[in-house]
């Protein structure tokens, strides 16, 4: 876990106690995000949990009620211009001037960033829009508009890319394409990416680290591997004389639970399972089945966000 070793202050993006109140109600509360260089950080949460509000504050579009944002080791409030020069963003839905062509849309941003003209062609080729670049954007499909939005975000050669729900409204092929594009960026260009989503399945395939926000509070933040470890199974034993067997296991110090004829033991390593089976057999129990019960990542997520069912 490379990023956990980083000393405080060396994060590429860090927020401390970030809070936003709207009409007296805290929509974002004491959020401490930590994003390391080269991460693809999945920012997860149900709709309305405060993802977009947090992202707006990361970009200086909204002012925090309390707390601060540090990017590239500098305070955003004091160094907004310098920081934003190295940040590309796509918030909620793509912005586009429908009456202008794809190229002209990028030219608007290029002039403000003051980067060389070649960047336009480069950005267009990264998102594979070269063919349609001469057409007015109002005729683009949603997927193309989204890609143009990514091209705009990439125009300034950013070190940090902030993408809010980048696959929103795309069809499966478009989602697949966007996913490949996002995954390829850190390797090719050394970009760090923050991407928000309300779908774990979406982020799971791209992210190296996740943060989960629920009703404004960050309730989980760690590597995707640690999140997956949480899904480690419980072992279920079906045995004869379960009452006896259960008492014996408790005496031996195993945290076993009994449910009629089944006993379950959580987070058991292979060796533990082996010794439990040996003990049960020695005591004369018949062991009918030893099964692993694995919860899905999705159900862990749903449990955490407390949304059950759909998000």
């Amino acid at each position: 876990m490379k990023m956990m070793k980083q000393a405080s202050g060396s994060w590429l993006l860090e927020t401390k106690g970030l809070t936003k109140k709207l009409g007296g109600k805290a929509v974002v509360r004491d959020v401490d995000l930590r994003i390391g260089e080269g991460d693809i950080y999945g920012f997860l949460g149900p709709n309305g949990a405060g993802k977009t509000t947090t992202i707006r504050m990361l970009l200086g579009l909204a002012k925090p009620t309390r707390g601060g944002v540090t990017v590239f080791g500098k305070s955003l409030a004091a160094n907004r211009m310098e920081i934003l020069r190295h940040v590309g963003s796509l918030v909620e839905y793509p912005s586009y001037y429908g009456h202008l062509t794809g190229t002209e849309n990028l030219e608007v941003i290029r002039r403000l960033l003051d980067v060389p003209k070649e960047r336009i062609a480069e950005a267009l080729s990264i998102v594979r829009l070269e063919k349609d670049a001469g057409r007015a954007v109002k005729g683009y499909s949603l997927g193309m508009k989204q890609r143009l939005g990514i091209a705009a975000a990439l125009l300034g050669n950013p070190r940090l890319l902030i993408l809010d729900e980048p696959t929103n409204g795309l069809d499966p092929a478009g989602i697949q394409e966007m996913r490949e594009l996002i995954k390829s960026l850190p390797g090719q260009r050394g970009v760090t990416i923050l991407l928000s989503s309300h779908l774990l399945s979406e982020v799971e395939l791209m992210a190296t680290k996740v943060g989960i926000i629920r009703s404004g509070s960050l309730i989980y933040q760690d590597s995707i591997a640690s999140l997956k470890a949480r899904t480690a199974g419980r072992i279920r034993f079906s045995v004869s004389e379960p009452e006896d067997a259960w008492k014996r296991l408790l005496e031996l110090g195993f945290e076993a639970e009994r449910d009629q004829s089944r006993l379950t033991v959580g987070g058991a390593a292979d060796r533990t399972v082996a010794s439990i089976v040996a003990e049960l057999v020695r005591r004369g129990h018949s062991v009918y089945r030893v099964e692993e019960e694995r919860s899905s990542l999705e159900s862990v997520f749903l449990e955490m966000t407390g949304t059950g069912g759909s998000l």
Binding site: G60, L61, M81, L84, V91, E92, S95, Y96, L113
Partner: peptide, 17 residues
């Protein structure tokens, strides 16, 4: 033009004051 394009957020997230 900006309202129609939903471009205020894009514009103000660029390094311009």
């Amino acid at each position: 033009i900006e309202h129609q394009a939903g471009a205020w957020k894009q514009l103000l997230a660029l390094p311009v004051t």
